[in-house]
Design a protein around this nucleic acid. Structure first.
Length: 282
DNA sequence: TTCCAGGGTCCTA
DNA sequence: TAGGACCATGGA
């Protein structure tokens, strides 16, 4: 793995020799919902941290507070060896062309609670609406930052009235958001999920209201670095049907992905998901 | 007007 | 244990 370097330039950090990074793909591929593009910069909030990110030749410009630098380096997953993962996935005939089509795909390490609530909201929903609901929740229950709002704390959502969550557009997911926030605010050690067997981690997360195996897999993949997780949604079902030429149930799809993609299943999933969701756009 | 979206819960057989 | 009805919402 080639090592990147960081140098400060005024209020910004220039991260050089960073390959496998494409902000347009990373922030628009449906793994996070709080980044928008403005004047060539992707800007957004994670938890209570604000940042702007811009692609440059052989690297990125990261604009954030000095105290938040370590947070964003982890968030952007800069220490993971994507070169190696892509080399391994290139052996797969289906994924190989997708790697070329989507250079710089990367999996983020998002805030656990924010990711959990976001994907509870994602159930039977589309990305545009998910973004809107989260924005309204943040404006109502988050803290005002210099730019935007922080994501609400577990305690603030645990104490929220269901009718107020409904006005944010959450629909039938409103009680799930409140009950899960109450469970989290009573104490939950999410770090243990990083090491335990995938199935055990899924079972632990599905104890939260509004969390099934698919949402659990998204949380494991997009906030806890579990790159072996393979979320099965409507798009992935369609892809797997095309690949296997038969209708498979979700458990069979997960087992199939585990065998075919192994520890890189999550990255393969994101290539398949993003390609199939956007292939008719151009 | 109908379909669909990064699904989950609950009930029934 | 598996399968299906039902659940808000708004854009296409």
């Amino acid at each position: 793995m080639r090592e990147y370097s960081i140098r400060r330039c005024g209020d910004e950090y220039i991260i050089d020799n960073l390959h496998d990074f494409n902000a347009d793909i990373i922030f628009d591929c449906g793994q996070c919902f709080r980044f928008t593009k403005k004047d060539k910069y992707w800007q957004g909030v994670s938890g209570h941290h604000f940042a702007k990110v811009k692609d440059i030749e052989n690297g990125i410009i990261l604009s954030c507070k000095e105290a938040d630098l370590r947070y964003w380096i982890n968030y952007l997953d800069l220490s993971y060896d994507y070169e190696k993962a892509k080399r391994e996935l290139s052996l797969d005939s289906v994924i190989k062309p997708l790697i070329s089509l989507m250079p710089g795909m990367r999996l983020l390490n998002q805030d656990f609670f924010e990711c959990l609530i976001s994907f509870i909201i994602s159930s039977n929903n589309n990305i545009l609406r998910i973004r809107g609901i989260i924005d309204r929740l943040c404006a109502r229950y988050g803290k005002k930052l210099d730019i935007g709002y922080s994501f609400p704390t577990p305690n603030s959502l645990a104490l929220a009235a269901e009718t107020d969550i409904l006005t944010c557009g959450a629909g039938y997911r409103a009680p799930y958001i409140i009950k899960t926030s109450q469970m989290i605010s009573n104490g939950f050690d999410y770090n243990s999920l990083k090491q335990m067997p995938l199935k055990q981690a899924q079972e632990t997360l599905t104890k939260f209201m509004g969390v099934g195996v698919k949402v659990a897999d998204c949380v494991l993949l997009f906030s806890l670095g579990r790159k072996d997780a393979f979320p099965v949604d409507t798009w992935i079902r369609k892809v797997m049907h095309d690949i296997c030429h038969e209708r498979l149930n979700d458990n069979t799809i997960r087992e199939y992905a585990k065998k075919r993609f192994g520890k890189n299943a999550g990255l393969a999933n994101q290539y398949l998901f993003h390609y199939n969701r956007t292939k008719d756009d151009s």
